[in-house]
C-alpha cells in the first residue's frame, strides 16, 4: 500500500498514467496498433509514427519547460519554427534538378542560428527591457510569420534536394526515423545541462523568488535571457524537422499552433505555469501524449476539422485528473458515498 502511494504521488505518475490510458484505448480500438513491421530496412508502425511525429513537439517543450519554470512563457515558438524552415529551405533552394544552392549543413546551421537569434531577441525583451513575457513573445508570434513570408517572397519553396528529406524521414540504412534521433539528442543535451551545471537550480530559484535569487548572487537577468535563447534554439531545430517533413517552407502553416501544444505538453507534464519546479520528463511524456491523441483520432476516423474538439475534451479530462482541487473534491465525494453505503446497510 505504501509503495502504491509512493508511486502515485510521484511527479511522473499522472502524465504516464494519462499516456497509458490513451495507449490502452488504442490497443483495444485501433487495429494493429502495436504492430511494427520491417520494410526496406526501416521500421514501420503506429508506435514508431507517434514517436517520430512527436519529436519536434518534444524539442519545443524542452525549451518551453525552462521558460515556464522562470514563470515566463514563449508564444513565439510556432512562428520561429516557420522562420527557421524558411531560411533553411531558401538556402538550399527550390531548384527542380535537385541541386542545392548552398551546402545543406550550412542551411541547417542557418535555420538553427536564426532560431537562436529570435530567442535572443525574446530574451532581451523579457530580461533586459522587462516586458511581460506574453507581450514580448507576442511580437515575434505576430511578426514572425510575416518575416518568414518576406524571406520566401510569399512563395512556398519546395526543396527537391534529396538528402533534405532525410531529416524528417529516414537516413538510408537507419532503422528508425531521424526525428527520433534528433529529439533523443536534444533530450540528452538537456539532461547533460541539468546534471553538469547548476542551471536547473538557478532556473527554479528565479522562478520561485526572483528577488531572493538576486540577493543570493544569481544573475537573474542572465538566467531569464538564457532560457528564451534556448527556447529559440529548440524552435530552430524543430523548424528543420517540420520543413523536411513536407520538403518545403510554408510560411503560413509551418509550426502553426505548435506553441500552444508545447505549452500544453509542459502543463500536462506537471510543471506549473506560475513557475518554479519543473519536470522535463513530464514535458516529454506530455508531448508524446498530445501526438498520440492526434494519431488516435485520425486512426478512428475523426477528421482534422473536428480534431480540436476532441483534443479539447481530452485535455479538460486530463487537466481535471491532475488538479489537486478536483482530487480532494472527488475523494471527499467518494468518502461520503462510502459512508452513505454503510448507513444504508445498517
Amino acid at each position: 500500500m505504501n509503495k502504491f502511494k509512493k508511486i502515485t504521488s510521484s511527479s511522473m505518475f499522472l502524465p504516464l498514467f494519462a499516456l497509458g490510458i490513451l495507449l490502452l484505448f488504442n490497443i483495444v480500438f485501433v487495429n494493429d496498433f502495436l504492430a511494427i513491421s520491417m520494410e526496406n530496412g526501416h521500421l514501420y508502425g503506429r508506435l514508431i509514427d507517434i514517436l517520430s511525429r512527436s519529436s519536434s513537439l518534444i524539442i519545443l517543450s524542452l525549451g518551453m519547460t525552462f521558460v515556464i519554470a522562470t514563470s515566463g512563457i514563449d508564444i513565439s515558438v510556432g512562428a520561429v519554427v516557420a522562420i527557421s524552415a524558411a531560411i533553411c529551405c531558401m538556402l538550399i533552394g527550390g531548384r527542380g534538378d535537385g541541386i542545392p544552392e548552398h551546402p545543406m549543413i550550412l542551411a541547417m546551421l542557418a535555420g538553427i542560428g536564426i532560431g537562436v537569434i529570435c530567442g535572443i531577441w525574446n530574451g532581451l525583451l523579457v530580461s533586459k527591457i522587462k516586458i511581460q513575457p506574453v507581450v514580448a513573445t507576442l511580437i515575434l508570434m505576430v511578426a514572425g510569420r510575416g518575416i518568414a513570408q518576406l524571406l520566401t517572397q510569399g512563395q512556398i519553396i519546395t526543396v527537391y534536394y534529396k538528402p533534405f528529406s532525410y531529416i524528417g524521414a529516414n537516413i538510408p540504412g537507419s532503422i528508425l526515423p531521424t526525428p527520433i534521433f534528433i529529439a533523443a539528442l536534444m533530450v540528452l543535451l538537456v539532461i547533460l545541462i541539468l546534471k553538469k551545471t547548476s542551471l536547473g537550480l538557478f532556473i527554479q530559484s528565479v522562478g520561485i523568488n526572483p528577488t531572493a535569487s538576486r540577493y543570493a548572487g544569481i544573475n537573474v537577468v542572465l538566467i531569464i535571457f538564457l532560457v528564451y535563447a534556448f527556447s529559440g534554439f529548440c524552435a530552430g531545430v524543430s523548424g528543420l524537422i517540420e520543413s523536411s517533413l513536407i520538403r518545403a517552407a510554408d510560411a503560413n502553416n509551418a509550426g502553426l499552433n505548435m506553441e500552444m501544444d508545447a505549452i500544453l505538453a509542459v502543463a500536462l507534464g506537471g510543471t506549473l505555469l506560475s513557475g518554479g519546479k519543473f519536470y522535463i520528463g513530464g514535458s516529454i511524456i506530455g508531448a508524446i501524449t498530445i501526438q498520440t491523441l492526434t494519431t488516435t483520432m485520425y486512426a478512428i476516423g475523426v477528421s482534422s476539422d473536428q480534431l480540436p474538439v476532441v483534443k479539447a475534451i481530452t485535455v479538460i479530462i486530463l487537466c481535471l485528473v491532475q488538479s489537486k482541487k478536483f482530487q480532494t473534491v472527488f475523494n471527499s465525494w467518494k468518502n461520503k458515498r462510502q459512508s452513505q453505503k454503510v448507513v444504508d446497510r445498517t
Partner: peptide
C-alpha cells in the same frame, strides 16, 4: 520571506544557493 528564502526549494538547495552562484553555473557542486 521576500528577499531571503526560496520557499519551494529544499533546505539543502537554499543552503548551497549562494555558494553555487559564486562558484558559477558550470562548476556544479
Amino acid at each position: 520571506k521576500l528577499q531571503g528564502i526560496i520557499g519551494d526549494l529544499s533546505v539543502r538547495d537554499n543552503i548551497i544557493l549562494a555558494l553555487q552562484a559564486k562558484e558559477g553555473m558550470f562548476r556544479h557542486i
